[in-house]
Amino acid sequence: MPNHIVAVNEVSKSYRRDSLKIPVLENIGLSVPEGEFLALMGPSGSGKTTLLNLIAGIDRPDSGTITVANDEVTRLSESQLAVWRARHVGFIFQFYNLMPVLTAYENVELPLLLTKLSKKDRDEHVKTALSVVSLSDRMKHYPKQLSGGQQQRVAIARAIVADPTLIVADEPTGDLDKTSAVEILTLLERLNQEFKKTIIMVTHDQRAAEKAHKVRHLDKGELV
């Protein structure tokens, strides 16, 4: 019996637009074992990003519980959640979301500023993360000086630099050309296989989903 790192139990979530209540997720249940590479697929509006946000502790469900790395995230306060996210979750976004005024090195260093690591230790961590994504020679470059694929690799380095328990990726190849997308997927695969990272990835891309161990489909707020 594998050790489940993520356990989603009977989670429902809806949004309000004016007086309208829009249900997004209904009684979702999901378990993700440690070391899993899970792809969540589904049409637009099916609730996959919402589910990812709930698991990553950046949104709260209306009902149900979510446990990640033995912490019931649905019970944590906002400030506890912030600390928890910094410790346990690495984020990869579709549009990279790097700080344009910071170099690749500084972007990767950003999450470490919240830790008590010394400058020397931070430097070591950042350089290791950048070498994992093969961008050691671009550490002084600003995001605008990098290609889309390179920016996404910096974002991946930022996601792994604090050695999180879980990596969540929201359409990580959605803004990339085919070659860059393959590079990123290969990198994610390597993080999973070589570094044993648990990854949950939301994607529309069938080729991306093929890299995952497991694919779950969401449709109209339900896992099918």
Partner: peptide, 12 residues
């Protein structure tokens, strides 16, 4: 969006 990313990373 940048502030949201920072919050996501754990900035309080």
């Amino acid at each position: 969006t940048e502030y949201a990313v920072m919050k996501t990373l754990g900035f309080r």
